[in-house]
Computed example of a mutant assay.
Amino acid sequence: MDLIRIVVADDHPLYREGVTRSLAESGRFSIVGEAASGPEAEALIARERPDVALLDISMPGGGIETLRRVMAAGQPPKIAMLTVSEEDSDVMQALKAGALGYILKGVGARELVGIVADLAEGRTYVAPSLAMKVLAAMNAPRAPKAATPLDDLTKREEDILRRVAEGKSNKEVARELDLQEKTVKHYMTAILQKLHARNRTEAALIAREGWPERKS
Rank of each mutant, 00 (worst) to 15 (best):
I160V: 12
P76A: 10
D88G: 04
Y102W: 13
I79Q: 00
S129W: 08
L153W: 05
E42T: 05
M92A: 02
G106L: 01
A140P: 11
G114P: 06
M1V: 14
D2G: 08
M92K: 01
A137N: 09
E42Y: 00
Q193I: 14
L100N: 00
R163W: 13
P60G: 10
A24V: 01
A127H: 09
T148Q: 11
S37H: 07
M138T: 07
E34S: 12
S216D: 07
I79W: 01
S58A: 10
T20D: 03
H12P: 02
P141D: 02
L205N: 11
A174Q: 02
V173C: 04
A117I: 05
R175M: 09
Q93D: 10
W211H: 10
E121N: 13
E166S: 13
G62H: 11
H186N: 14
A53P: 08
T66M: 14
G108E: 15
M138A: 13
K194Q: 04
H12M: 08
D51Y: 08
M71S: 05
T20A: 10
R175F: 07
S216N: 12
E25H: 12
A35I: 08
R198P: 00
L100F: 06
V19E: 02
D2P: 14
G74I: 05
I45Q: 01
R142Q: 09
S85I: 02
A94D: 03
V134A: 07
E166K: 15
V126T: 14
A72Q: 15
D90Y: 12
I6A: 01
L153C: 03
D88L: 15
A46D: 05
E65T: 09
R156H: 00
D151I: 07
V70D: 01
P141N: 00
A99T: 06
P60Y: 12
L179V: 12
R163I: 11
A140I: 14
G114A: 07
S129A: 15
E121I: 01
P77R: 08
T83G: 01
G167F: 11
I160H: 06
V91S: 04
G62K: 12
V184G: 00
K145A: 11
P212S: 12
A136Q: 15
I64M: 09
A9F: 03
A41Q: 04
D88I: 03
P50G: 05
L54K: 00
P141T: 05
R162Q: 15
Q75Y: 03
K194P: 10
K215G: 11
V164S: 05
I57A: 03
G61A: 11
E86I: 09
A137I: 03
R47D: 13
L82H: 04
Y187S: 09
R162A: 11
I45E: 00
Q193C: 03
H196W: 04
E176S: 12
E42I: 10
L54R: 00
A80G: 13
D118G: 14
E202F: 04
K78V: 11
L82R: 01
A41R: 00
L179K: 06
D10Y: 07
A136Y: 06
A204K: 04
A190L: 04
D178S: 13
A41N: 09
R47G: 02
P128W: 08
I103Y: 02
A99G: 04
P77A: 06
T124Q: 14
L150R: 00
A131S: 11
M138F: 04
G27D: 13
A137K: 06
P212V: 15
I64H: 02
R208P: 05
L95M: 15
I31C: 02
A197T: 11
K155P: 05
P50D: 09
R156A: 02
M81C: 13
A80K: 04
A72W: 04
